[in-house]
Structure formats: structure tokens, C-alpha cells
């Protein structure tokens, strides 16, 4: 028995569990013994209809579709011998889904009850209630000040800006390749072990640090440098690999 398209009302389901509960209720199915094959078919029919009407299907719905299909597949497979993997649900692949459905059902009911409370509570008004309820709570201005004063101060502050002009956001001028060359050059020139911190004079941005670290890893991979640390989270010390010494700059 498949679901004829005209029977699908696209109510606003709160999520895949809501839709499943609806299918179970409409089909008068037993939530503790859900016929997976039937429910999966109906569920997928709903998704298809949503797509057909060009509605956005939230990813959560798709995840559930996959879950249903997985359960269905497991039910179709012959029972595994107990010697194999200790699965959580060796008994019933539907068990986890059933638990989730029961759980959601409880809170769906409680949510509806809260909704009723909300409606009856909304009948009681306290003094001054008709002022906008969702206000942004800005503190009142002290006596003698008004908006104009504040604006004047702000304008003065803005004109006094002596700080450096906003920095440009540099795009990829710190490529990994560049840093590879920089690190190599530094180590070669120093003729000794250098500290990771020396790679970045000044205050490097996060992008630079990440690129730098990638450069370090690349050089390690190519066995052109060696690194060591004297302690956990200590400074990273970089030195040139023996085999690298005679090589030309690359």
C-alpha cells in the first residue's frame, strides 16, 4: 500500500521526528512496533512531494531518510551470529529510533501544554504592559545630558583619531611556498638552530601562523629541516638537515 499523492498535506512539521509521529498516528501504527518498510516509503513520499513543491528540505530530514533506509536494510539482512561485532542493538535495529520517537513525543506534548499556559497567562496584564515588551535595555541618561551632547562627544572623538589607518587585509601574500623559502633562507643564513619565533618578526596574523606551520611540516616531510622541542609546548627549534647543506636554493 503506497501513499497516493493527494493524501499528503504538507503541514509544517517541526522535524523528521514530528513527521514520523504524524505518519504513525495517521496510519494508526504501533509506535513500539513500527512497520519500517511502510513508514520509510511514506516518509520518502513526503520528501519527494516537498521537493516537487520546491520547498526546502532541511538536512535533518535527509539524515532521517538515510537512517530509515539503514534500519530497513538491517531488518532485511539475515541475523548475524552473535560471535560477530557486539552491536548496541543486536536485537532490534528499530530500537534506537523508537526511543527517540517516544522521547520526542513526550516533549512535543509538554511543549503543547506550555503553549496553553502561555495563552492563559497572556490574559493577565501588569501595569504598563503595553510599552514594548521586548525592549533593548539601555540605561537612562544622567540628568543634564541629552542625545545631542553624546553626539558632540562622539564627533570630537572621531576627529581625534591618531591611531594607524585601518590595515588592509592582505590576501594570501603569505603563501605556504613563500614561507617555505623564508624558513629555509633563515636557517641557512643563521648557520645554527633558529627559533620558530624568529620566522615571524612582529605580530603575525593567524593566517600567517597557519601557513608558516604548514611550511614547517612541508619542509619536514621533504627532510630538508629537522625540528626539536626541549619541553612540551616549548619553543620549536629548527635546524638544517645535513643532506640539505650542499643543496642549491630551491
Amino acid at each position: 500500500m503506497s501513499v497516493a499523492p493527494y493524501r499528503i498535506h504538507l503541514e509544517n512539521f517541526e522535524g523528521p521526528l514530528d513527521l514520523l509521529l504524524h505518519l504513525i498516528k495517521e496510519g494508526q501504527l504501533d509506535i513500539l512496533d513500527v512497520p519500517i518498510s511502510l513508514v520509510t516509503e511514506q516518509y520518502l513520499a513526503y520528501l519527494r512531494e516537498m521537493r516537487r513543491l520546491d520547498l526546502d528540505v532541511a538536512s535533518d530530514f535527509l539524515v532521517m531518510a538515510a537512517t530509515l533506509l539503514q534500519i530497513k536494510a538491517r531488518l532485511l539482512l539475515p541475523k548475524q551470529s552473535t560471535a560477530l561485532a557486539e552491536d548496541e542493538e543486536t536485537d532490534d535495529p528499530r530500537q534506537e529510533l523508537t526511543q527517540r520517537l517516544l522521547e520526542y513525543k513526550i516533549f512535543k506534548t509538554l511543549g503543547a501544554q506550555l503553549g496553553e499556559l502561555e495563552q492563559s497567562a497572556a490574559n493577565y496584564f501588569a501595569r504598563g504592559w503595553y510599552e514594548p515588551l521586548v525592549t533593548s535595555e539601555s540605561p537612562p541618561l544622567p540628568d543634564g545630558l541629552d542625545l545631542q551632547d553624546l553626539l558632540a562627544v562622539l564627533r570630537r572623538q572621531a576627529m581625534q583619531r591618531t591611531s594607524a589607518p585601518p590595515q588592509e587585509i592582505k590576501r594570501a601574500s603569505v603563501t605556504v611556498g613563500r614561507l617555505v623559502r623564508r624558513i629555509l633562507a633563515l636557517v641557512r643564513r643563521a648557520g645554527r638552530e633558529i627559533n620558530w619565533r624568529e620566522v615571524f618578526p612582529g605580530r603575525p596574523g593567524r593566517r600567517e601562523l597557519v601557513s608558516g606551520f604548514l611550511a614547517l611540516l612541508e619542509l619536514l616531510r621533504r627532510r630538508r629541516i629537522a625540528v626539536r622541542q626541549t619541553e612540551l609546548f616549548g619553543d620549536i627549534l629548527i635546524s638544517i638537515e645535513e643532506s640539505e647543506r650542499g643543496r642549491p636554493d630551491a
Binding site: E14, L110, G111, G115, E118, Q119, L133
Partner: peptide, 19 residues
């Protein structure tokens, strides 16, 4: 105007949190 009533999603979320 009054503050709109809460959505079902909000009520479900509140139910979970409340209990």
C-alpha cells in the same frame, strides 16, 4: 500590538529545558 505567541519550535525547546 502584542508580543507574538511563541512558535512550536520554541515551545518544544522550552519544554526540554524546563524539565
Amino acid at each position: 500590538m502584542r508580543n507574538p505567541l511563541l512558535t512550536t519550535a520554541a515551545l518544544e525547546t522550552l519544554a526540554i529545558l524546563a524539565y
